[in-house]
Nucleic acid binder design. Structure first.
Lengths: 203, 203
DNA sequence: CATAAAATTGACCCTTGAGTCAAATTTATT
DNA sequence: AATAAATTTGACTCAAGGGTCAATTTTATG
């Protein structure tokens, strides 16, 4: 009988895993480019070249450019979801839960790789619908935290949705100015942003 | 001798004025469309149709699509500048000046017509440079207000630029969710956003 | 080594949409 | 009405870029 190696060592020889990895790399590279130059200013050929590939090779891993954009959105939202779930219900009160989550989200976005795209209008039909639904879900989860905080008295009153819109803007705007390795580190940003958000809401 | 009418009555017969007006209307209509569907998802033909014109007619008023995008940016920044200048140095302290300005900016953006575009990467060469320079100037003017506030003790310490990035995000994110005539009125948004910003910064 | 599956390629097709141009139409002026 | 200037149009050109396909190279396996 053949000896079975550990899964981790077998992984590099696992075809499906390899495929999935490469596919993810494509999405990542594309996301990076989209973030910097925008979806429509980035051609498939460019994405391919960045990976040392040919445009045609890309299409072996992906069905369309639009699909890539879609997956870029989903990738971030998955990470967001995980982050929110991880802290769900924890923290002394709504405000402190919110602070933790917000801080983690900033760190997530400044740790290179993931970037929050804003170009939803370039997605058509169901794709756009799905992404918007997804965004809505996350926003409403965060809104729930805010509501919790308003109930337990840690967060000042006001329209909860509007409250969320305000600081979600800060996250989305990150892409426009944040440069990894620049004067402002991810941790610094997380710290100051969180303080600013927290004080803005504290009762 | 011919009698001279008031300028206001003569205006409709003033060729240059007419031209300028129509041109402005083109920029406005385009800006509106860009905001909703994005620059690249809006064709010149669509812009024209929205005005009851033909694509070729647009080119009578404008040299290129890119020029339109450029002017859209400039138009908003002009309005921003005016708003900031109007309140320059006024207010009991930095924080109150900042609050007033911020509130006015929100109102400006929710009063239909003007919209803050984010697609800078679709501009090439000098156009992009100019817009970024312009954006930088405004940000630094606002940053100056923040600095004033930190000096006079009304605003808590921290990196001033980072402070500004935080709440400028809220303005830029407006486009993604604000719908004129919806549940959340411009005035309401202005009020709550300003409170949130103010409390976030108050010493 | 032979074979099949996986991965990659170059050449090609085709649509979309920006921008042009000469001609037609409208508007003001004498 | 005649003329010149201002507007507007339909028909066209052209390049960019997304996507396809048949053929080739690479990789794993018996």
């Amino acid at each position: 009988m053949k000896g079975q190696m550990q899964t981790s060592l077998k992984e590099p020889f696992n075809r499906e895993k390899q495929f999935a990895n490469k596919r993810r790399a494509v999405i990542r590279a594309a996301g990076e480019a989209f973030r910097r130059r925008g979806y429509h200013n980035t051609s498939m050929t460019e994405i391919a070249k960045a990976l040392g590939l040919t445009k045609t090779a890309l299409y072996y891993y992906v069905n369309s450019k639009e699909e890539i954009l879609f997956e870029c959105h989903i990738m971030v939202y998955d990470a967001f979801d995980e982050c929110v779930k991880e802290h769900k219900g924890k923290g002394a009160n709504g405000l402190s839960e919110l602070s933790t989550v917000f801080s983690e989200l900033v760190k997530l976005l400044t740790r290179d790789g993931l970037s929050l795209l804003t170009d939803v209008s370039s997605l058509s039909g169901n794709w756009q619908k799905d992404v918007l639904k997804r965004r809505g879900k996350i926003e409403s989860r965060v809104t729930d935290i805010v509501k919790r905080g308003m109930k337990d008295g840690s967060i000042r009153g006001g329209d909860p949705q509007l409250t969320v819109f305000f600081f979600m803007g800060a996250l989305n705007w990150l892409n426009a100015w944040y440069a990894p390795g620049g004067r402002l580190s991810g941790d610094l940003i997380a710290e100051q942003f969180t303080a600013q958000m927290r004080n803005g809401l504290a009762a």
